[in-house]
Simulated scan of single mutants.
Amino acid sequence: MIIELSARQLEIMSLVKQNAPITGEQLAELLGVSRPTLRSDLSLLVMLGLLDAKPKVGYFLGNAYRQDNAALQNLKTMLVRHVQGLPVNIADTLSVHDAVVNLFIENADTLLVVNEQKRFVGIVTPKDLLKVTLGNPNAAGIPVSMVMTRYPNTVTVTPDDPVTEAVRKMITHQVDCLPVVIDGQDGQGPEAVGSVTKTNVIHLLKDLVRTAE
């Protein structure tokens, strides 16, 4: 029987791995939920042997998780370049209307914005577009450069960063997509060469963090 963990359970496992021993209250705070919300998740993970718990100490990795497992060992050395996907780039002069169209056509949750030199300058999310369009009939013609989150205020990774670092950044900053950038050779700014989404990482972890009997 294969038991697949939920997205939140995978996040719990990642946080425990990085911070053990860690209390339920600390986990709830990092995940932005209440302690009772996590109770069933923690109980399941303990039951499966993926987590152990000690009163007044906290949670730490269980025996089932610590067993020698080639896939888990591979995760420790896996780099962002191994899991990144193609970026969905749009020009900073593109209108908000066309950005929305691109979101649907590309089935993307984040658009990477580039300037005329094709250098990465920011990101646009559905939330960004929703904020500017609600109650504003003229918003469709506004360029995305006016609503995007500008680099370097965006959270990014490089192709040579560990996948575990990408997971940590997604959880810490509560973002669904990380642009993968490299330094431009001519000093004109970074280039966006890919993206890592939470969906990509969850599918990866789901294959690695599971138990069978």
Rank of each mutant, 00 (worst) to 15 (best):
N89L: 13
D41V: 04
G49R: 05
R39F: 13
T37H: 13
I105Q: 12
K17H: 08
D92W: 00
A108K: 01
Q73A: 13
Q84L: 06
R35T: 11
L27N: 00
S40M: 07
R35S: 13
L27D: 02
D109H: 14
H82G: 12
A20C: 07
P21C: 12
L48I: 11
S40L: 10
N74G: 04
L42H: 02
M47L: 15
A53C: 06
Q26E: 15
N107E: 15
Q26H: 09
Y59K: 00
N63Q: 12
L31E: 06
L42A: 06
S43K: 09
T93N: 04
E11G: 13
D98P: 03
I22F: 01
P36C: 04
L86C: 00
R8H: 14
K76D: 14
S34K: 12
N69W: 12
T93A: 06
I90D: 00
F104A: 12
M78K: 11
L31R: 06
A91D: 15
M13L: 15
D92V: 00
R66S: 05
G32R: 05
G58P: 05
S14K: 00
N89F: 04
L75Q: 11
G32Q: 08
Q67A: 10
V16T: 06
L94G: 01
N74L: 08
L61A: 08
V100K: 08
Y65R: 04
T37N: 13
K76R: 12
H82E: 15
H82F: 08
H82P: 05
R66C: 05
G85I: 03
L79Y: 07
L94K: 02
R81H: 12
L48Q: 09
S34V: 07
A20F: 06
M78F: 08
L10N: 07
N102I: 15
V101F: 14
L75D: 10
P21R: 10
F104Q: 11
T37M: 12
G62T: 02
E11W: 11
Q84E: 06
Q67T: 09
L30V: 13
D68G: 07
D92L: 00
V83Q: 05
D98F: 04
D98R: 07
F60D: 01
L38F: 00
M47N: 15
V16R: 05
M13E: 07
V16C: 06
Q67W: 07
S40Q: 10
M47Q: 15
D41F: 03
L44E: 12
P87D: 02
G85E: 04
V88T: 03
R66Y: 03
R39L: 14
A91W: 09
K56I: 10
M78S: 11
I90G: 00
S14C: 01
L30S: 12
N107I: 10
A99W: 00
D41S: 08
I105F: 09
T77I: 15
L15P: 04
D52E: 15
S43L: 10
H82A: 14
V100R: 07
A53F: 07
S95L: 03
G32Y: 06
K17S: 10
A108Q: 03
T77Y: 11
D109Q: 10
